[in-house]
């Protein structure tokens, strides 16, 4: 990061910012407590964005290009969302970069203890964690995996982007992680090789992800997955999800509500 930006961020450390937003022509901003707060720093230009991406990728854009074409790059525990002028050519898929969203991870130990108790009452059932983007789904999923795994449940984690199982995170003693592959291949690999009691995956969005869920259901393995959506009604507007809901794939949903800097978990029965 440019020294000026690091300096400007120093004083916001205590606010536990969730994201750094960098947009060409605008001052950088920190996202916390549900809104963006501009920093006392010079406006960002494309050169700065390129330097940050070079830092993140170790100046090896050719190696990160497949991920960047999807709009993000994960390095360690950071996830960098990318936006700009797209191009049909090879490479990153971007002719110019205009915005970056650097997601800053926080491990909130203890935040999901009560939620875990609620979800395991009467045995764990297929659960869907639901919140709008940036609402804390991945953090909640990671915490639940760790807690359930430390309770002795064999958990197969499909970590497509390497975001859940980055080095800094502890996923518990009974977690087996398959990363760098799509959800369907990951699920089949876990079912064949690790006999998981529960399969966990982040962001079930694309039709291929839904296909993976349909494949897992009925294999005698529970599911813990996340999806984008403000509420259950949101899900019903999406054909693929409506199909899953109508089939009764999920028995529980966890809705995440953000108030200020705090997150509240609401468990709903879908049966």
């Amino acid at each position: 990061m440019p020294a000026e930006l690091v300096q400007a961020m120093e004083r916001y450390k205590g606010f536990l910012p969730e994201e750094i937003r960098l947009r060409c022509g605008h001052r950088p901003a920190l996202f916390y407590a549900g809104e963006e707060h501009p920093l006392e720093a010079m406006p960002i230009n494309e050169e700065t964005l390129v330097r940050i991406l070079q830092r993140a990728t170790g100046a090896s854009l050719y190696q990160a290009s497949a991920a960047l074409r999807e709009g993000y790059y994960c390095t360690g525990s950071l996830r960098i969302g990318v936006c700009g002028q797209t191009t049909a050519g090879r490479g990153t898929g971007f002719a110019h970069f205009s915005s970056l969203a650097v997601r800053l991870p926080h491990e909130c130990r203890g935040a999901c203890d009560t939620l875990k108790k609620e979800l395991t009452r009467g045995g764990f059932r297929n659960t869907l964690i639901l919140s709008p983007p940036g609402g804390g789904k991945t953090t909640a999923l990671r915490n639940l995996i760790r807690l359930l795994s430390n309770d002795g449940m064999r958990i197969g984690v499909i970590d497509e982007r390497g975001e859940l199982s980055a080095d800094v995170y502890d996923l518990g003693r009974c977690s087996d992680v398959v990363s760098g592959t799509n959800k369907l291949s990951g699920a089949l690999l876990l079912l064949r090789s690790m006999a998981p009691q529960l399969i966990a995956a982040d962001e079930i969005t694309a039709p291929e992800d839904i296909a993976a869920i349909e494949e897992i259901v009925g294999c005698g393995t529970s599911l813990l997955v996340t999806a984008h959506g403000k509420n259950l009604a949101d899900l019903n507007t999406r054909d693929s999800y409506r199909r899953l809901m109508n089939r009764g794939v999920f028995q529980r949903a966890v809705l995440i509500h953000t108030r200020g800097n705090k997150r509240h978990y609401e468990v709903r029965s879908l049966v």
């Binding site: 050169e47 390129v50 330097r51 940050i52 830092r55 170790g58 100046a59």
Partner: peptide, 10 residues
């Protein structure tokens, strides 16, 4: 020098 990436361009 790779540690200076971000501040400096490759």
């Amino acid at each position: 020098g790779m540690t200076s990436l971000g501040v400096k361009r490759f």
